[in-house]
């Protein structure tokens, strides 16, 4: 179900195609609208932000994603340590102004929704669940053609990265 490239042994190589990205982005936008949410994030359990819609002033979304992913993994590990057989699937924090709801998409991705207390948790649960089922389906589809991926890094790429690193790091 995960567009994971297994050629590299056990190293994770996740590739999302243009269609997959656009479809997931559309679902996230729609979820945000339905829940009148301020921010919806789709991320990877290793801390990578994949798609988002919305903004919260002063909140660095990449940092937020890294934290959410680790928090999720940590809770999963805690569940494992106390002998829970069930895969840990969701996470909920209640704030005074905003609530945070995080749900796993398969084992590799998650969806995080920041919403207003005026929206019921039940609503959030239902719409999030529907969205993540759809995302799950999208992730089952064929990722990018191999030939295209190989183009991603051509022989010049490395030297350009080197030049750019020199520029920004001195």
């Amino acid at each position: 179900m995960i567009p994971m490239n297994e050629r590299s042994g056990s190293q994770k190589m996740i590739i999302l195609s243009e269609e997959q990205f656009l479809e997931i982005s559309a679902l996230i936008t729609s979820l945000k609208g339905k829940l009148n949410s301020r921010l919806v994030i789709f991320g990877d359990m290793d801390g990578q932000l994949i798609a988002k819609n919305g903004e919260i002033p002063g909140l660095d979304v990449t940092v937020f994603t890294a934290l959410t992913a680790s928090d999720f993994s940590a809770t999963k590990e805690m569940a494992r340590m106390v002998g829970s057989q069930n895969e840990f699937k969701l996470h909920y924090h209640e704030g005074s102004h905003q609530h945070l709801y995080v749900a796993a998409v398969g084992t590799q991705f998650f969806l995080a929704v920041i919403f207003d207390p005026s929206v019921t948790l039940g609503m959030v649960r239902i719409f999030t669940k529907k969205t993540l089922e759809k995302i799950d389906k999208i992730l089952e589809t064929q990722p990018v053609e191999e030939a295209q991926i190989t183009q991603m890094i051509d022989s010049e790429f490395k030297s350009f990265v080197k030049d750019d690193l020199n520029k920004i790091l001195g």
Binding site: Q11, K12, M13, I14, I15, L16, S17, E18, Q20, F21, L22, D44, D46, G47, Q48, I50, P143, V144, Q148, I149, M152, I153
Partner: peptide, 14 residues
């Protein structure tokens, strides 16, 4: 490693 083909983004973790 993560490649978002739509954005031509290649993201690595160190």
């Amino acid at each position: 490693m993560f490649i978002n083909w739509a954005k031509r983004e290649i993201s690595v973790k160190i």
